[in-house]
């Protein structure tokens, strides 16, 4: 057992998997000698060489499109999109091609690729280095979408993603890269895709979150615990396929559900969670399904006052919990 940062856990996993399986390649912008703008791939180029760690031109569509082709011909690419905000040039390749390859070919071809991308705000990244883009992709059958929140989960889930036979989007909150640390076992382990985790047991309100918000939800739960509100926190970890059992099991127990996400509120991923809870746990609900989410402006503004205004934080979540608990 060792204490690793979120970033180190991801980097360790890439190296270990590349050592295990020579068909794995890493490609993206600045992933080579520099080791990525966040240094997630640092050291891979030195160990595995430029054949397996490929510095690409600034061409996100190409990064994903060539990954699809390389996967068809026997490789297992792990692509990095430098910032999730820059994934949209590759949207067509991800949504029209990677997601649909298996279905449209009636299982003749699969698409075993992993697309890693740092996402999220709170790091002075402004409109184009702060976005949460998961909802665009969780909408699409054929894709798997993972948003881990701990070094343990990041490692176990990235390993599962790389070994998965379908396209996986793996979103890493950049604010967590160095600020979040945790125990990571020495041996090889996986965390299964599609399993949520109850990270705090409680009785009165279920808070559903993922990524950085899973941490903030725990902080908020701690605050309101002092006020006598017992909160259960469900860290989804995988957004698609969704672990309905854990989600609904918790809500059926507490009777109240608060969904937290950093993305814009309207049409965000949490809206689907709210819909599922409303449809499938209605008889258990003792209050409306509520949301704490980012405001509906086109991006996270740069100035720190404005950025603080945008970001969901533990106090905003705590306020949401209080409101729902009092309902």
């Amino acid at each position: 057992m060792a204490i690793r940062t979120f970033l180190e856990a991801i980097r360790d996993t890439l190296g270990e998997e590349m050592r295990r399986d020579p068909s794995i390649i890493v490609l993206g912008e600045d992933v080579g000698v520099k080791g990525g703008v966040f240094l997630v791939t640092d050291g891979l180029h030195a160990e595995f060489g430029e054949t397996r760690v490929i510095d690409t031109p600034l061409t996100e569509s190409m990064i994903v499109g060539t990954s699809i082709g390389a996967a068809a011909n026997g490789l297992r690419p792990v692509a990095e999109i430098q910032f999730a905000d820059f994934i949209f040039p590759a949207f067509n390749q991800i949504v029209s091609e990677a997601a649909r390859m298996r279905y449209r070919s009636n299982n003749a071809f699969g698409c075993p690729i992993t697309i890693r991308a740092p996402y999220g705000g709170g790091v002075h990244g402004a409109l184009y280095h702060s976005q949460s883009v998961e909802a665009f992709f969780t909408h699409v059958p054929g894709l798997k979408v993972i948003v881990p929140s701990t070094p343990y989960d990041a490692k176990g889930l990235l390993r599962s993603a790389i070994r998965d036979d379908d396209p996986v989007l793996f979103f890493e909150h950049k604010k967590m890269y160095r600020s979040v640390r945790g125990d990571v076992p020495d041996g090889e382990y996986t965390v299964p895709i599609g399993r949520a985790a109850v990270t705090r047991v409680g009785t009165r309100v279920t808070v559903v979150a993922y990524g950085l918000m899973a941490h903030y939800a725990l902080e908020a739960a701690e605050r309101v615990a002092e006020e006598g509100i017992s909160v259960e926190v469900v860290d989804l970890r995988t957004l698609r396929p969704l672990d309905r059992e854990t989600l609904l099991g918790s809500v059926r127990k507490t009777g109240k559900c608060l969904v937290v996400y950093e993305d814009n509120r309207f049409g965000g991923y949490g809206a689907e969670i709210a819909a599922i809870v409303a449809e499938e746990a209605f008889d258990y609900l003792d209050g409306p399904v509520m949301r704490v989410a980012g405001p509906d402006v086109p991006g996270v503004p740069y100035n720190h006052v404005l950025e603080d205004w945008f970001m969901v934080n533990p106090e905003k979540i705590a306020e949401g919990i209080r409101t729902l608990a009092a309902y």
Partner: peptide, 30 residues
């Protein structure tokens, strides 16, 4: 498309397949 013939499945948005061919060629090279 046909796996038996190394003919990759194709879609309708045009020119996406150029990148797939580049990826196949990259894998062939590696």
């Amino acid at each position: 498309g046909g796996a038996a013939y190394n003919i990759l499945s194709s879609s309708s948005p045009v020119a996406t397949q150029i990148l797939h061919a580049a990826g196949i060629a990259l894998a062939a090279q590696i």
